[in-house]
Design a binder for these strands. Sequence first.
DNA 1: CAGTGAGCGAGCTTCCGCTTGACTT
Length: 986
Amino acid sequence: MPRTLVIVESPAKAKTIEKYLGKGYAVESSIGHIRDLPRSAADIPEKYKGKAWARLGLDVEDDFKPLYVVSPEKRQQVARLKKLAQEADEIILATDDDREGESIAWHLYQELKPKVPVKRMVFHEITREAIQNAIEHPRDIDTNLVEAQEARRALDRLYGYEVSPVLWKKVAPKLSAGRVQSVATRMLVERERERMRFVSGTWWDLLVTAATRDGETFPARLTDVDGMRLATGKDFDPLTGQVKKGMEVRLLDEAAARSLADGLTGQPLTVVSAEEKPFTQRPYAPFITSTLQQEGSRKLGFAATRTMRAAQRLYEQGYITYMRTDSTNLSQEAMNAARTQVGAMYGQQYLSPQPRVYAKKAKNAQEAHEAIRPAGSSFRTPESLRGELSGDEWRLYDLIWKRTVACQMADARGRSLRVRLAGRAGTGEDVGLSATGRTIDFPGFLRAYVEGRDDPAAALEDRETPLPPLKEGERVTAESVKPEGHETQPPARYTEASLVQALEAAGIGRPSTYASILGTIQERGYAVKKGQALVPTWTAFATSALLEHHFGNLVDYDFTARMEEDLDDIAGGRARRVPYLRRFYLGEGGEGMALRPLIDSKMGEIDARGIATIAVPKLDGTGIEVRVGRYGPYLQRGEEKANLPEDLAPDELTPEKAAELLGRPTGDRVIGTDGATGLPVVARAGRYGPYVTLGDGNPPVRSASLFPGDDLNTITLERALRLLSLPRLVGVSEGEEIWAQNGKFGPYLKRGNDSRSLATHEQLFTVTLPEAEALFMQPRFRARGAAAAPLRTFEYQGRAPITLKSGRYGPYLTDGERNATLRKGEDEGTLTPERALEILEERGKEPKGKAGKGTRKAAGTRAGGAKTGATRGGTGARTAAKAPARKAPASKAAARKPAAKATSARAKTATQAPTKTAPTKAALTWADLKPHLGVLSEQERALVTATRDQGRRVEEVAPTLGLDVKKAKGMALQASKKLNQAARGE
DNA sequence: CAGTGAGCGAGCTTCCGCTTGACTT
């Protein structure tokens, strides 16, 4: 019966270690972190739900005290560990020897609350020797290291959960910001900006095929003409496409190149110099996560996730060591195995004379594990595993094996040759040429492994390019001469592999997260993959611009590096977590980011409209702007707008392309021609859904939404014209016209200021005057309770029944008192009465309106709630809700006071300015709104002040602002929404 | 902002880092 419980992080590791430890030990795993800050509201324990800081999971007023909850997916494992801990005599926490591993050990200790002695042990290799050694040298949990991890965790939470909401308000909902992803996104954006600014240049040169007396041929390239060096790519200014100023170079155009080629063909050339230089090349370091992903991509064409999936399987089955590592270190066991294998397979001369040790490579590396290598003390050859491993796994193992073996092999040796030639063209110019060659005398490690390259031109380096033996003074002939045109290329976009490499170089992200970073920036819509390339989206431009301009430090490449230094200080006991976080978050002592105050001031300052406008240098002066709107990116030139196609990369947007997009009505299909007007009828997909228009302009003469059931692809001219015939005059009633129209809430009838919904769209065409009048006789609103019939009803003894209804936000449960929206996974079909009750008990909420309107007080809530519950049906509820407001006209202001208190209690920190807000949707007065004018753009502000303060009409104000009336009205509406949102603190 | 009249159960989105399944396609 084992008495010592050893806990590691990974189940696969547990299995291996258990073998080495044998009897007396039970080895278990935590499966990574077991606790974390609550991710969302659902994770917050009831006790803390009301706390102002619960959303952050950090009590910012109490020294950023973290609220840790056992992650839902780890509950089972934690329960299991608790049980095992109770049965053990001793517990050894053997999590990884790095910041996160130390933290996991500490969380295990906190959560398991062991009553038996607890030790901490660490090892960096999974070999029998290393494990034994670790067991014999236990230590205590390093609380400084734990504190450093907590600081890291808190900082990431504060950054992510405080800055993301800024993006929701200023750019688009559901976007995100974070220490890692925002820098990754910025890298893509900056590279794309370079590409957008880039102007290509053209130069020509000559490729000469020279022949020796013996008839051997070799290629040589023109390097200078009449003593002046020929211009090549690097001589060009990427911003102008012209040769850089002050460069003393000769630029060949096509005509000159062709004439020179003709003049040189058949001419003799003299070898001016022939230099031969020996070179040696050392093998590459063994794989770490980033280099494995890079080579997986270059050599096997795997995406980072695919490489990691295959590596995970190899690791679990014991074929390779741990695949998430930043250390190039090999254990003695691995070194011996590699060297033995080199000797056996390639011979002693291929073995590196000394064992090679590779220095720490990655910035901020923590080196808790070995390099990635074949497992065991003797490596299994890929050939021997052919039948055992399949597909991706075999190919990846082969790669790992080769790289590991190669790293203990001898240097490659060879000679590089550089030959200079001179000649004279028949047309009189003196020319210089150059030929290079590379000969490998001893391949050494290249026998096993040649690194793939992102840049195909560089791959040539590893290939042999022999030259015939050429001596100074030797005469050769320019047998054929080919003029070649070249264009300078913009800097290449990042690929998954090169972005990971760049992040690693900047010390950003960890081996365990590289693959998921790529996923995150794509899921958030910051980047799309085009082949191998990662192309940033316009949303990424808007987001990056916002962060760069207003939160520059957060996307500074040095920010992470500095953070790592600070964390190192905390880990070393030279600094403390709390002061560090106070500086970062509150700006205490006038130092640090001061994130919270910064956000408070920026929230009003940042002009969302300005942020949505993206700088495109090539469009300067064209009057065309790129904007990111609610429905995606679009172009604007005065009144004209055009959606930007999804697949158009930012650097492909030229003035010509933009003009073309604006010129053609977007995504439309001409169905036919209207006989009456001669205008084309067009089917279009718009932001409000599919619609048809009369006329193909922008805006069209008329437009009409399709009905549900109509299909944009199959709609006929006849049907389109019928839709365009709306609105229809139904008749005249009570001296006013009744019109049947299609609106944003569906089909409806309109008579003066009154309206009634229609049941179906088709009724728009069929409803008669008497039917319409009958509808207007009925009350305007559907009686409450007579709303859509409940989908299901659950009956209970001793309590009101619970009904399942279909609402605007999806299915929800209600018992008349409280409502609860169903969440993902809570299938309405399989819901049991017990579960329904549970859900309602757990998170049922009193509808806002009932408690809110004018009666926030206890009496109102309780009694009102009960009453509405009892008198459901008819208009009772409405009357009940309205009554108090009518009785006490002053209650609006009175009700807002306590409500405002509630809101500020819920506000994030004490530093946040007290907000004059009302959480109820009661209409806010101009006085309530006025203090928030700061959230508006200048134009919006001018418009709103003119209409509200001076009582002028939009029609009247618009021209003075240079706006047309229609646009101004839209703007006024938007501005009013923004103001209300801001005033409510939303 | 292609055009459009009410008023309705809101509640959540988001970070980074450490680990695997359990799901589905």
